[in-house]
């Protein structure tokens, strides 16, 4: 894929806008309420591991929670009471579930490109729910997912919002145009490999630059 000059500068602007965003975290109250909710979630995740397969996506999360606006900060004791969670909250839950399954996982921040009519819909939905819509920039959307280490430096990316593995080859509508795998708190690796792409951790990279030959 070759990005048009206009698209490239738009993505650069989007990266600048979201560069300092940290992956979402769900917080604990200093009381039993959040401890109980968290332990309950861990046990739920183990229960859904019916066949012991480590690298199976935790589909059950999206069967329980719809995708929609979340108000932040979010606490563990609030999660179960909510019907909808945004991609950041779903990403936290999915990473917790992957850990229970025995997988090594990291947050991954993405920028995805849709159509303007889509992002207008989302903006309306978030703002009418008195939630921030600053994750939208024109037809680009900030998104969170889970990078799961498969073997050595090879990763796969689980999208907890769509409840599927993202294809590194996917281009066009909904495609990832930039991403950042957050491995800040772990031993830094030289590069990660996602499909045919090499990815430097903790760095925002444009997928076209990584994916195409010069």
């Amino acid at each position: 894929m070759r990005l048009a000059k206009g698209d490239r500068s738009k993505i650069t602007i989007a990266i600048e806008r979201w560069r300092h965003w940290q992956p979402s975290r769900i917080l604990f109250h200093h009381e039993d309420c959040c401890l109980i909710a968290h332990e309950w979630f861990i046990a739920m995740a183990r229960s859904h591991l019916t066949d012991g397969i480590v690298f199976k996506g935790p589909h059950w999360i999206r069967q329980r929670w719809s995708w929609g606006p979340s108000k932040w900060p979010l606490y563990w004791c609030q999660v179960e009471k909510l019907d909808t969670l945004d991609c950041g909250a779903l990403g936290v839950l999915a990473r917790e579930a992957f850990k229970v399954q025995g997988a090594t996982t990291f947050p991954v921040q993405l920028i995805r490109q849709f159509h303007l009519q889509d992002t207008q819909q989302w903006r309306q939905k978030w703002e009418s729910g008195t939630c921030l819509s600053n994750w939208i920039l024109d037809d680009l959307a900030y998104h969170e997912a889970c990078a799961v280490i498969r073997q050595d430096s090879n990763i796969e990316i689980w999208d907890p919002t769509d409840s599927c593995w993202i294809s590194p080859e996917a281009r066009g509508y909904g495609a990832i145009v930039a991403l950042c795998v957050d491995m800040e708190s772990f031993e830094p690796r030289e590069t990660l490999v996602w499909g045919s792409l090499n990815i430097q951790p903790n760095t925002w990279v444009v997928v076209e630059v990584l994916g195409s030959s010069p």
Partner: peptide
């Protein structure tokens, strides 16, 4: 194994 995790969750909480 999942029941053991539930039991642990009850014990912890």
């Amino acid at each position: 194994e999942s029941i053991l995790v539930w039991a642990r969750a009850i014990e912890t909480t």
